[in-house]
Every structure is written in C-alpha cells, then in structure tokens.
Write a protein that binds this DNA or RNA. Structure first.
Lengths: 203, 203
DNA sequence: AGGATTAAATTAACAGTGTTAATCTAAAAT
DNA sequence: ATTTTAGATTAACACTGTTAATTTAATCCT
C-alpha cells in the first residue's frame, strides 16, 4: 500500500472517530447541549480540526442522520421480508417506527430537527441517494402493497404514505419532547393511532 | 390617579410594546433568527432593559405562546358553538388547527418549539391556568361530545384527544418545516388525515 | 425646595456558540 | 537536503443569552 492511500485511509479512520465521538456526545448530552467545541474537547483536538473532516456542523449532523436512517432502513427491510400479510407489515412498520423514536430520542431529534438544508432542495432530495430517501421509498412500497392487494382502499400512494408517516412522527415528537404534559401511555397512543388510521383507510 | 399606579400602568404598557415588537420580529424573521439583541435594537433600548420586563427569553416566548393559544382558543370556541353536529365540529376543529399552523408557521413554531419548561412540570401545567391548557380542555370537550352522542365509538377520551392532536401536529410540522421534501398538497393531506382518523374511530 | 430613596436604563463583562484566516509543525516528495 | 504539501493550531470575528455594577432619572419625604 502506497503512502498516499495510507494517508487517505488514516484520514477516513479519523473521520469515523470524530463521527463516533459526535454520536456519543449526542446521545449522552442531547441535541441542545451538543457543540463543536465540546466535541473537540472530547476527541482532544482543537475545534478547527473538525472542519478539516466536515464542512460544518450541519455536514456532521447529516452524517449522523444518515447513520440513524440506515438503522431504520434495515429495520424496515426486516419487516418487509418477515411479514407475509401486507397490512401486518404496515402496522408493524409504523409501530416500530414510533418505538424507534421513543427509544432513541436524541438520534430521532437530530434526524428531524437539524436544518432541512442538509438534505438539499426537494429535487436534490429525490435525486441524490440517501438513507433517508431509501427509507421513504421502502415505506411507500409497503403501503403500495396494501393498496395493490386490496387490504387498503384505492388512493394516492404518496398521499397515504405521507399521512401515515406524519401522524406517527407527530406522536413521537409530542410525547418525547413535550414531557410537561400528562400524556397517556405512549404505547397505548401508538397502537390507538395505528389502529384508527388503518381501520379508516380500509375498504 | 396616583403617581404610583401611573408608573405601574406605564410599565405594563411598555411590557406590551416589547411583546408586540417581539411578535413582529418573530413573524418576520422567524424562530431561529430571533434574538434578544435584535429585539433590543428594534425597540431602541439596550438588551438588558428587556430583562426588567421579562425574566428571560423563555418568559418572553411564553408570553407570545399564550397569545397564540388565545387566538386558537377563540377559534375553537367559535367552532364549538357554530356546529350543531359534534362530528362536524371535531372535523372542523382539526382542519382549522392545521390551517392555523399552515398560515402562521412562526407563531406555531414558537408555540411548539420553545423549551417545554416554560409551561412547568406536568402537574403545574394541569393546575396553572393557561391558554394552552384551556385549548386542550376545549378540544377534549368536542371529542367527548362525539363519543357521548355515539358519533365515535366508546373509548378513553384523553387517548383519543391526544391521538387526534398529535397526528394533526405531525402534519403541520413536517410540511411547514421540512420543505425539502416533495410533499403532496397540504390541504389534501389534511383532509385525508382527518377523514381517515374519524372514519377509523367511528362505530 | 432639597436631600434621600427608589426605580429605570445603561455599560461592561462573562461564558458560551459556529466559523474563518493566518500560522506553525511535521511528514512526504523531489 | 530542500521544497512541497498536508495536518493541526492559535487568534480572531461576529454572534448568542444573561448578570453585576453603575449611572441616570423620577419619586418620596421632611
């Protein structure tokens, strides 16, 4: 291995190290207490060093977002292949989406609270390969299956996909970031939400 | 009028002036571009002067929140008295909730994005009178009417109220703050969401 | 009316934030 | 061995919310 690629490899490794430290800081300290300077201190480098590996804070957060989306995508894939009934798959996809949010509040927050610009414009989002995009496509595929097999009534696939996902998102954000409200049991709310929605869109 | 209460009146007026300027700055500049120092510049006072009228930034944002909630509460009251059919009232309450969010993105943002602490703990929220609390109670009243009159099936009122409101909230936040996604028409999504949910919870 | 008291507003400062330009250091290439 | 290049750092800028100390202005009291 030439010294040239050796350096490139080290650089990549260091990038990963920063990313791991960032994720760690994120999970433990939370979204609002995360800062570039704290990250620098954690990895024992000056703050500016980070900028040699990530364009800016958003780029760093984007990288973490993609990791989160990757986890979620894998989960979605598992569901799609292990549930023969499309409606069961959809129900499970929604439930585990919400559980993911409940169990990983900080990861979820970075994913949905970082500047929308990190994924570029509408066109860029749809064209550029990203874990986030793939997740949406896969979730839509599950929804489509329900419609195609007649388990849900005929309607615009994108509209239904979006309605289901925003509803689930709403439950996650409200119960995890508005703790100062006497919410009913999260799991009860999640099941009630999914049951109601799927029942509502059945034939 | 004694000079004592005269001063108190002036103080209250100035408080209002600051609040008005803050709301203005908020609506025009948006949540993330709002700052105490910009507000100070706008009202042509030093930044610290604001702290003589509001404990801190959160207290100021809380005051704006309450204004927003007041508007929404009035709207909800109007609906409750003008729709004889409980289910129509509920449908309209949800639709106008979402429209309110669509049309007032910055006000909505301050209301749902400021530190949860501004409304205190769970117990404090339920005990202390606030526009936000009143809104929840009124919305729940509308939901309760639907169940009591048999327009929706028997179930826990709070659970249903919360499910409906978080779903609507999810649609608002996603479509207004995640613009970098090819959302379907917001109004279509809103109606699809409400139709699906209400259908799902009917007998 | 004039001195004491109180209220209002300000300046200066602290401890943070993200980020850039210029500089120094150490390794690689010629 | 000297030049080139890459890596990391220091210093600085322009912000943020907020507090303590200080000055300015109005009110109270004798």
């Amino acid at each position: 291995m030439g010294a040239r690629e050796k350096r490139a490899k080290y650089k990549e490794e260091f990038r990963r190290e920063i990313l791991d430290a960032a994720r760690d800081l994120f999970i433990n300290e939370g979204y609002e207490r995360f800062s570039m300077r704290k990250l620098a201190e954690k990895i024992e480098y000056s703050p500016t060093t980070i900028y040699l590996y990530f364009k800016d804070k958003d780029a760093l957060l984007f990288a973490i977002c993609e990791e989160v989306a990757e986890q979620f995508l894998a989960n979605l894939n598992h569901i799609k292949t292990h549930y023969s009934d499309p409606l069961d798959a959809l129900r499970q996809a929604m439930i585990s989406f919400m559980e993911f949010g409940f169990n990983n509040p900080n990861q979820y927050k970075v994913f949905f609270f970082t500047s929308p610009e990190v994924y570029g414009s509408q066109e860029e989002f749809m064209e550029k390969e990203s874990m986030a995009r793939s997740s949406y496509f896969l979730f839509r595929e599950i929804v489509r299956n329900c419609i195609a097999t007649g388990r849900l009534r005929e309607m615009d696939t994108d509209v239904l996909t979006q309605v289901l996902s925003v509803a689930a998102h709403g439950l996650i954000v409200m119960t995890t970031y508005r703790k100062n409200f006497p919410w009913a049991d999260r799991s009860v709310l999640a099941h009630t939400l999914v049951d109601g929605l799927l029942r509502g869109y059945q034939k």
